[in-house]
C-alpha cells in the first residue's frame, strides 16, 4: 500500500513539474510565436505581389481582409461576409448576409476593433454578440484584397486542399481579372524528392500568368518539361537571368496557354495542386462576383 502511494505521488509530482515547465515556456514564447507567424504570412503575401526587402512595398499599399462565415438558423443556411467598410476616417467591419442563391438578406454593423479582427477569438465574440442564438456561425475562409492607392491590385487567397498524403496549404494571388499572379506553397508533407517538388520554382511558377479562361479547363500533361521553359520558370526566382530580355517574352507567350507539366514521379501531387488551384480560382470568382453585386446594390461603403 505504501509503495502504491509513493508511486502515485511520484508520478503526480513529475507530471506537475513537467506541466509547469511547459506551461511557463508556452506563456513566455506565445506572443513572439504569434508575431512570427504573422510576419511569415505577411512576407508570403508581399512576396506574391512582387515586393521583397530590396523592393519594398509602397506606403499606400493596403491589405483588407474579408472573412466568410456560414450562418445556420434552424434549417436555413446563409453566408455572412464580414467586410471592411469605411467608417469616418478609419476602417470598421460590417456583416452582409447573403442567402445561397446570392440574394441579399440583411446587414448589420459589427462592433470590433479593426486591429484585432485578425484574431479568431475576437471575431467570434463580436459575432456572438450580434447574432443571437439559435443562429450558429462557422468560420469558412478569408480573402485578402490588396489595394494600391485607389486601385485594386490583387486578391490573395489562402487555401487548403488534399494532396497525395495530407493537406497542402497554399497562398494564391489573383489580379482583378482573376489571372494568376503567383502561387506559393505554404505547408505540405508530400514525399521528399517526389511530391515535395511542388514547392520548386519550375512547378509552382507554371501557374503564373494563367488566365481565368484557361483556368476553367486546365489539365496536367505527363510530358517532360522543356528545357527552355524550365530555365524561364527558374529565372524569376534568382536575380541573374540566363535568358536574354527579348527571349523572355517569346517563351512566355509560347507557354502561356499550355497545360501544367507534371512532376516526374509525382503525377498525383501535380494533379492535386492543379485541381486544387483550379477549384479555388473558379469558386472564388463566382463568390466575389455575387458579393460584389450585392454590395453595389445595397451601397455598402466597402473599403476594398
Amino acid at each position: 500500500m505504501k509503495e502504491i502511494i509513493r508511486i502515485t505521488i511520484g508520478l503526480t509530482v513529475s507530471c506537475l513539474i513537467a506541466a509547469l515547465v511547459m506551461g511557463s515556456v508556452f506563456i513566455i514564447t506565445d506572443k513572439a510565436k504569434k508575431h512570427n507567424e504573422h510576419v511569415n504570412v505577411q512576407q508570403t503575401m508581399l512576396g506574391l505581389l512582387g515586393y521583397t526587402k530590396q523592393h519594398p512595398a509602397p506606403s499606400d499599399l493596403r491589405l483588407y481582409t474579408i472573412y466568410r462565415y456560414i450562418i445556420t438558423d434552424g434549417d436555413t443556411k446563409t453566408l455572412g461576409y464580414m467586410l471592411p467598410v469605411l467608417r469616418g476616417d478609419g476602417v470598421g467591419y460590417q456583416v452582409v448576409v447573403i442567402d445561397l442563391d446570392g440574394q441579399f438578406v440583411n446587414q448589420f454593423k459589427l462592433n470590433i476593433n479593426p486591429e484585432k479582427a485578425s484574431e479568431p477569438t475576437e471575431r467570434s465574440s463580436a459575432l456572438k454578440a450580434a447574432l443571437k442564438p439559435p443562429k450558429i456561425f462557422v468560420y469558412s475562409d478569408s480573402t485578402i484584397v490588396a489595394k494600391l492607392g485607389r486601385k485594386r491590385l490583387a486578391y490573395l487567397l489562402p487555401g487548403e486542399f488534399p494532396g497525395f498524403k495530407t493537406f497542402i496549404n497554399v497562398m494564391l494571388a489573383l489580379d482583378p481579372s482573376f489571372e494568376i499572379i503567383g502561387l506559393e506553397i505554404t505547408e505540405q508533407e508530400e514525399d521528399p524528392g517526389l511530391g515535395a517538388e511542388i514547392k520548386q520554382a519550375h512547378f509552382k511558377n507554371q501557374f503564373k500568368g494563367k488566365s481565368f479562361e484557361k483556368m476553367k479547363e486546365l489539365h496536367v500533361v505527363k510530358e517532360p518539361l522543356p528545357e527552355e521553359y524550365k530555365k524561364y520558370l527558374e529565372s524569376k526566382e534568382g536575380k541573374e537571368s540566363p535568358i536574354p530580355e527579348g527571349e523572355l517574352d517569346v517563351i512566355r507567350s509560347k507557354y502561356q496557354d499550355q497545360d501544367i507539366y507534371a512532376l516526374t514521379g509525382a503525377t498525383i501531387s501535380s494533379k492535386a495542386v492543379t485541381n486544387g488551384v483550379k477549384n479555388m480560382v473558379l469558386k472564388f470568382a463566382y463568390r466575389i462576383n455575387r458579393l460584389e453585386a450585392v454590395v453595389s446594390r445595397q451601397h455598402v461603403p466597402v473599403a476594398f
Binding site: 515547465v21 511547459m22 515556456v25 508556452f26 513566455i28 514564447t29 506565445d30 506572443k31 513572439a32 510565436k33 512570427n36
Partner: peptide
C-alpha cells in the same frame, strides 16, 4: 516541447 516553442518564438 520547450525546444519547439523556443525555436518557433
Amino acid at each position: 516541447t520547450v525546444i519547439d516553442l523556443v525555436l518557433a518564438a
